[in-house]
Each structure stands twice: as C-alpha cells, then as structure tokens.
Nucleic acid binder design. Structure first.
Length: 789
RNA sequence: GGGCGCUUAGCUCAGCUGGGAGAGCACCUGCCUUACAAGCAGGGGGUCGUUGGUUCGAGCCCAAUAGUGCCCACCA
C-alpha cells in the first residue's frame, strides 16, 4: 500500500485507515506462544449505565498506554476487556429509559429488556474504545451476564459455601426501599439532609425524661432508652421503665458507653432500626425486634397512628401528633449526614431479612496484610483501602432481591428450609427454571428456588479468575487499574475473593487513576454545559491522538479538569510531529541503510543520539511507575526543544548542501536523524499510536521490516555519555545567545552576522568539529571558539 | 472527629535523593527562516499560603497555622 505525506495531516482519514489496518493485520491479537513474559492487565469492565463520558476516556486511555508501553518493552501483553452488564446499574438504566418499574413486569420480560439495553450499549462502548485506537484483542472480551462467566461466578460462590465463607442468615440488613433490595456497606453514599432534632418527654416514675431524636416515626419501634453508665445525673434511672409517648408502652432504661454525654439530652432512644448503633445494641443487649418499616418503605399496618404511610409522611404526622399533645418540647433545625443508596439516592433503612453474606469481618487483618503486599501507584492510595477495611462494620451482603443478575445456584427444602446447592455439572443454573432434582437430608423432595441474584460486585470481584477462563494461569496478574472511587468496592472485594480462592493476592501492582472534573469542584454530569465534553464528538473533531495526548498530561491518581481549550495544545503537537517527520523523512529517502560501515559521527549527531537514549531511559523509568505524564513530558522536551528547535536547525544545512559540508558529514547527519526520529516515534507510539504508525509505514518500514511501529521494541541503552550531553547544553546556550542578539535587534534569524563567538568550558575540540554547522546555522562569516570559560 | 492530598507566574500545572525557580496557555516585541505563520525567535511577570525551626544553603526536611479538595466516620 502506498502511503503519502501530504502537506497537512488529515486525522479523520489516517486514524480510520490505521485502525482498519490494525484490525486486518490482527496486530494486537494475543498469542500465548509469543516470546516475552506475560504482562496481564485487569481492566475495569464498565457498568452499562448509559453514560460514556470523558472520565472513561481519561482513565482507560492511561491504562491502554501502559499496555502499549509494556508491549514495546518486549512483554507479551494480555489485555482483556469485559463488561459488567448484570446488576442494578443496568436495571436502573432500563427503568429510567423506558419509564417502567421492574416489579411491574413479568420477570422474564424485564430481563429481556435489560439484555437488549446491554447489547446496545456494549456495542457503543466497543466502538468507542476502537475509535481511540485501543490495542485490545476483542476475541478475549467477556460479559458478566454471559453463561461462561455465570458458571465461574456460581462455581466460586459454591466454593465459598464449602469453605464456610459464604453463609445465609436472618439478620438486620442495609435495605433500599426504593430499589427494594438489600445492599452492602460499599454501596452507601452520604448526603447532607435537612431535618429536625425533636425533644420528646418519656416518663419514668411519673417524671419527664427528655429524649432527642431525628426519627420520631420510630417511636413505635422503640425497644429501650440508653444512658451512659458514667452519667451521674442519670444513674438512678438505669433499670427503671420509661413510658413511650403517644404509644404508652413501657421500655427499660439501659446503660451503654456508646452514649455520649453531651449529644442531645444524653439519653438515646433505641429503635429497631434507626441506625447502625441500634443494630449493635440489638445484638449486644439482646433486644426484641419491633417492626415499623417494611421493605417497600411503608410503615407496617400494625403500627398505630402511622400504619401504611411512607416514612417521611409518617415522620410529619408523628411530629404533628406530638405537637398537638404538647409532647414536642423543642425542635431544632439541623443538617445532618444520612446514608443513602448510591444508585438511587434514597435514604437507606435497616430491616431484618434472610440474606446471603460473605464473611469479611473475621479476616480484616489478612486483607490489610494483602494490601501491604501489593504495590500501590500512587502509594498513598493504600490509605483509602486501609481505612475502609478498618472501618468495616457489616459482612458483605451478596444477595439482591433483583432480576438481571447471576442467580444463586440454591434451593430451599420445603419442609425444613435448609439450603441445597446445584451440582457442578448443572452450572450455570437458574433455580427458577431448573429443578433441584435431589432429596433433602430430611427426606423431602420438594424445593423452593432462591429468587435473589448476586450483587454485581460478587461477580466482578473475580475478574482475575474470569480472565483465566481461556486456560492461561495469570494470578497474581501483573496489574489492575481503575479510578480511585472504587477502591472500597472493586479493589477490596477482589482482594477478598482472591485470598479466599487462591490464597494469594490478585495482582502485583495497582494503578489508580484520577477523575475528570468539568471545572473546579464540578463533577461530570449530563447537564447542558457538559455537552461539549461528549467524547465521541470530541474524537471526531479533534482526533483520538489529540485526546490521548491530553489524557497523558495527568499525574497518576490526581483529578484533572477538562476544557476544550486544552485540546489545541495537543493538536499543535500532532501538527509539529507531522511537519518535523515530513522534513526528516524527505532528507532520509536516499539514505543507504545497507552499507555495513557506520559513519563517523559528528559531535552534534552524537549529542542528539545520546539525548534520545537518555530520554528512553527516563521515560521508561516513569512508565514503569505508571507515571504517564512524567514520561510524556520527558519525550516532549526531547522532541520539541532539543530535536526540532535545535538539532534540526543545526543539521539542516548539512542535509541540504553536501557539496559544501561534505558527503560523509551529511551521512552522519542522516544516521542521527534516522535514529532519533525513529526512536522519538517509538516512544510516542505509546501515546499517539495512529500518527506514529502512519509515519512509520510511510518510510521506516522499508528499513525496519516489522509491519508496524507497534511491533518494535524501545531501545534499551545501558548508559549515556554525560560529556556529550553537557556539550549539547553548551551548543544550545550558544545558539540561544545568537538568537537573542538577532531578536533584540529585530533581525531575521537568517540575517547575516560578521562573527559568531562560541564559549565553551572544555569542549573546544568538539566545537571545532561543529564549527561549520554553527556557522551556517547562524549565517555568520566566521566562527571563533573561546574555550576555558 | 480521623486519614490523605493540594497551595509555586494572570490561568492550568511540573519541579527527582536539599544547591540554577520552570513549562504550556495568556500578554508584549520582533521575524515570511527552502518541515511547520495552525510557525519561529525573544521578553516581561513569582517573598514558592503564613510563621517558626534544622542546615553553610530550604519550593523541597521538621513543627505549628490558614485555606482548599477527597476518603472514612458521624442518623440518638
């Protein structure tokens, strides 16, 4: 195929052309037989929630660059992509888009709608990654709802059951009354909500005892009052009975050190269940359960005065009743943080129910130790993990009373209620569609299927095992990457599962990327002002390489702001790379690479080669630490400042006029130019794969043989020559002085000058060999070298 | 309340193990120079949040303090 270099770089045509070529040539196809150690990347399977935003582009692109970097270090990169399509995010998307509620539809019909939505968005996502030039072997793609993954997920669940690490119990659980499912601690958000702190008198021995509460609707659920045992004012109350206002039943006054002396009135109402502390007290003090709130968010009918009302309406009504009865002695307006469900924003309740859990509370120490064995990039992200683990209060509830997810391979005996489990050969199985087919130990042959599905994280937490489904032993994988918001979920849960299933950490390195914010403090949303940040439109207009180049500007783990105003910088870089290459290649066309004798290099040529080697070393060091921005800046410095602004300007005349400068001298220049440009392109290939491969295929392919620049390896210079680099610094400073002189006199850079004085510390010999170059570069009549300065 | 960041030029940020304060954008001046005017060359502009300490020497280390952001806790 004939590729040409036109005056202007046409990203629309060339990016598409390159992507088609890569696909046709199967350039990124993973081959387990390929040489090189395997470098495996555990990439987040995006949840199908409908929004494809600049944050995806930013975070995934950085990881993709790491894949390219390691491939160009000679490693056999395994870089599978997946989709986390099952679960609540997809369900919420479908409910929102179609304006329906899952519970109003037949189960199978709703699941079918989810499947359709999933397919539609997954196609969009894949097209998107492809349009960014991702070096992914799409034949390794997985979906968490697929039969193969369902099977793995169910198998591993059964393994946990066998180990005693997964268990079922009837217990208070975090519950979303909007989504009508149990949820896990990791799915909580906190929102500041306006509320009132209500002071209500209970009566003990006929004397009023003021209790402050934000949840008066739970009065009927009150099971006791608590005071602090060290509270001298209250010690006489301990053990007595208190009369609950409005409802007129008696509850005991108990003592517990968790009660703070100075909060509210120092007396706490404990209800089942207002908050996490109530649950702890429920167990520690063996308290009874008084039902108030039902799973659908309505007050139980048996609760007088407010039965059947929604929680908020019930609260209002109770407050009004208290006021009417002169029982609301004080009411303070407050703003306080309440736990909400991250998927819908609704306040979370605590309701007893029968759920499946994975034991995590007994193994905190082990999880912390595992965290220490993993290399965190950037290192301080480990703190978020540590603090999360230390603060865990609930075992991981993995059952969801939802529809579009991996089913539990479980039935319950109709007689004794004991769970029975699917046999290995049955998997994957949906107990709603398949009979258990066995007999319970109690002799019963009838079973009730479990209709809950797994928490979506219960499946996505085994991505290392999912990635191993193709028969490759990968764990611990080389690297996991994602943004910092899911440390408490994806990172944590994967570590839990890996330790349980393999006894080992899931990956060696964790690369935690930052977030993209619209502007200071504003999160990305689908609001109008953010429409200009729609990524597919940005790529179409500004090119994938430009957006990739922009993404590579960030420091790892640090949030960044996106503004279209930043893209011209990237576009200018693309133009510069195009023009510089165009120039260099035009002077390399006649180069004879087959000559066996290497040219004797002039010092200037040695300098740019050494600078290139130095940059390769530095950029590789940064990328080995996942510092993409630092690496890019190193290469930028070499390319723009040293190569374009200085080296090319110096070597130009030699390339144009061998009759004046000498043919060997021209050959030396060609050699350095070839080496430097090729290696600059190789380094940039990680960041801007389209333009670099095009430039490679336009020219270098004749000499390098490999079909694509992406099949080449970076140089591995062992050391550089510091002297020649210092010499280069002196050349640059001499040229800068010359340019300054002309600029200050409003002269063209081409203006002729009488004499160029070169000042050098100790490189007089090298400057003598470069005198001709510098003389032409400055358009000077003579060059004088002043050494020893 | 606990933890982790950040604070450097008008803006966005880089500054490695302590020694010269930097880049891009913006601004000003000049330059059609056989890759690039979508360019090039040059310039102005900073008490490195504040205070104290260690050191021959601090943007960098230590302590305190202010502002700001995130993570966690906080529903009486």
């Amino acid at each position: 195929m004939a590729l040409s270099m036109e005056k202007h770089y046409d990203h629309r045509r060339i990016e598409k052309q390159m992507q088609e070529l890569w696909e046709r040539e199967q350039l990124y196809k993973f081959n387990r037989e390929s040489p090189g150690e395997i470098y495996s990347i555990d990439t987040p399977p995006p949840t199908v929630s409908g929004s494809l935003h600049i944050g995806h582009l930013f975070s995934y692109t950085q990881a993709e660059m790491i894949a390219r970097f390691h491939r160009m270090q000679g490693r056999n990169v395994f870089y599978p992509f997946g989709f986390d399509d099952n679960g609540l995010p997809t369900e919420r998307l479908v409910e929102r888009e179609e304006n329906i509620y899952a519970k109003d539809l037949p189960r199978s019909q709703f699941i079918e709608k989810c499947r359709q939505a999933t397919q539609k968005y997954e196609t969009e996502f894949v097209d998107f990654w492809k349009s960014l030039g991702f070096s992914v072997d799409w034949t390794t793609q997985y979906e968490t709802i697929s039969p193969a993954v369902r099977k793995i997920s169910q198998e591993l669940f059964l393994e946990l059951v066998k180990m005693g690490k997964a268990y079922i119990k009837e217990s208070p659980v975090l519950w979303c009354t909007e989504c009508q499912t149990s949820i896990a601690q990791a799915e909580l958000d906190t929102n500041d909500i306006d509320s009132t702190f209500n002071y209500i008198p209970f009566y003990v021995d006929g004397e009023p005892l003021l209790v402050a509460t934000t949840r008066p609707e739970l009065l009927y659920g009150c099971v006791c009052l608590f005071v602090n045992p060290a509270d001298e004012r209250r010690s006489a109350l301990i053990g007595k009975s208190a009369l609950v206002p409005l409802y007129q039943f008696e509850v005991p006054v108990l003592a517990d050190e968790k009660v703070s002396l100075d909060k509210g009135t120092g007396v706490v109402m404990c209800a089942t269940f207002g908050d996490n502390t109530d649950v702890e007290w429920f167990f520690e003090h063996d308290l009874p359960y008084r039902k108030v709130i039902q799973p659908n968010g309505c007050i139980a009918d048996e609760a007088p005065l407010i039965g059947g009302l929604k929680v908020n309406a019930a609260r209002k009504k109770i407050i009004r009743l208290l006021e009417d009865a002169n029982l609301l002695l004080k009411s303070e307006r407050i703003t306080h943080a309440v736990a909400t469900h991250e998927r819908c924003g609704k306040e979370v309740e605590i309701i007893p129910s029968r759920q499946w859990y994975i034991d995590i509370l007994t193994e905190k120490e082990r999880f912390l130790e595992a965290g220490n064995q993993i290399n965190w990039y950037p290192a301080q992200m480990k703190n978020r993990y540590r603090i999360w683990v230390e603060n865990l209060k609930w075992d991981w509830c993995i059952s969801r009373q939802r529809y579009f997810g991996v089913p539990f391979p479980v039935w319950y005996c109709k007689d004794c209620g004991r769970p029975v489990f699917a046999k290995p050969e049955q998997l994957p199985v949906n107990p709603l569609e398949t009979e258990y087919g066995g007999t319970c130990d109690c002799g019963c042959k009838e079973f009730i299927p479990e209709n809950a599905v797994f928490d979506t994280w219960a499946t996505s937490s085994v991505t290392p095992q999912i990635n191993e489904r193709l028969g490759l032993a990968l764990t611990p994988m080389s690297m996991r990457t994602h943004a910092h918001e899911i440390i408490r979920t994806w990172t944590f849960y994967t570590i839990v599962r890996s330790l349980y299933h393999t006894g080992n950490i899931p990956w060696k390195d964790l690369m935690i990327t930052g977030f993209v914010l619209a502007k200071k403090g504003e999160k990305i949303s689908k609001s109008k002002s953010n429409a200009e940040m729609e990524p597919t439109a940005l790529i179409a207009e500004h090119s994938a390489d430009a957006l990739r180049y922009w993404s590579a500007n960030a420091r790892l783990g640090t949030d960044t702001f996106f503004s279209v105003d930043e893209l011209p910088i990237a576009k200018r870089f693309i133009t510069k790379l195009w023009n510089a290459s165009k120039f260099a290649i035009s002077h390399l066309r006649d180069m004879d690479r087959n000559r066996s004798d290497e040219p004797t290099l002039l010092p200037v040529d040695r300098w740019i080669i050494e600078r290139t080697n130095e940059t390769v070393i530095r950029a590789a060091a940064a990328l080995n630490e996942y510092e993409i921005g630092a690496a890019r800046h190193e290469i930028d410095d070499l390319f723009w400042k040293d190569f374009c602004d200085n080296y090319v300007e110096i070597v130009k005349a030699r390339l144009y006029d061998p009759e004046i400068h000498g043919f060997d001298e021209r050959r030396s220049g060609q050699y350095a130019l070839y080496y430097t440009l090729l290696n600059i392109l190789k380094m940039y290939a990680v960041f801007v794969p389209h333009i670099t491969d095009y430039l490679y295929r336009v020219f270098f392919i004749e000499h390098e043989k490999a079909a694509s620049i992406h099949l080449l390896k970076w140089e591995r210079p062992k050391e550089t020559a510091p002297d020649i680099i210092k010499f280069g610094e002196e050349i640059k400073s001499n040229i800068a002085d010359m340019r300054k002189l002309k600029s200050e006199n409003n002269l063209s850079m081409r203006a002729e000058m009488e004499r160029l004085e070169i000042r050098t510390t100790s490189f007089a010999e090298w400057f003598k060999l470069s005198a001709m170059d510098l003389q032409t570069c400055a358009n000077a009549k003579e060059v004088v070298i002043l050494s020893g300065l």
